[in-house]
C-alpha cells in the first residue's frame, strides 16, 4: 500500500469534528496558515493513524492534528489561520 492510498479527506472525520465543535465542520471554510488558501474542511487531505493529521490540499502544510485518548482529546489547530462557520 502506498502513502496515497491512506489519504482520506475531511469528510472522513466529519463525525469527530461534529463532536468536538458542536456543529458540522465539513462545510466550514478554513484558511491555511501556511499558504493562505481558502477551502472547506471537507477538502483537507486527512491521514488517520495513531492520531489524525489534516493537511492543506494546496500546499500540504499540516493544518490540524487530533489525538484521542480514553477520556480526552487533544486538538492542534495552529495550521489554521481562520475558520468560517455558517
Amino acid at each position: 500500500m502506498e502513502m496515497r492510498d491512506l489519504k482520506l479527506d475531511g469528510n472522513a472525520i466529519g463525525g469527530l469534528m461534529l463532536e468536538l465543535f458542536g456543529s458540522d465542520m465539513t462545510g466550514a471554510g478554513s484558511v491555511c496558515a501556511g499558504c493562505g488558501a481558502h477551502g472547506e474542511m471537507a477538502r483537507l487531505d486527512v491521514y488517520v493513524g495513531a492520531g489524525i493529521v489534516g493537511r492543506c490540499c494546496h500546499c500540504e502544510a499540516v493544518m490540524i492534528r487530533i489525538v484521542q485518548g480514553r477520556d480526552r482529546t487533544w486538538l492542534d489547530l495552529s495550521g489554521v489561520a481562520s475558520l468560517e462557520l455558517s
Partner: peptide
Amino acid sequence: VRGPIGGYFV
C-alpha cells in the same frame, strides 16, 4: 449511530 454528518458533499 451519530449523524447526519456533512455539509459539503451534499
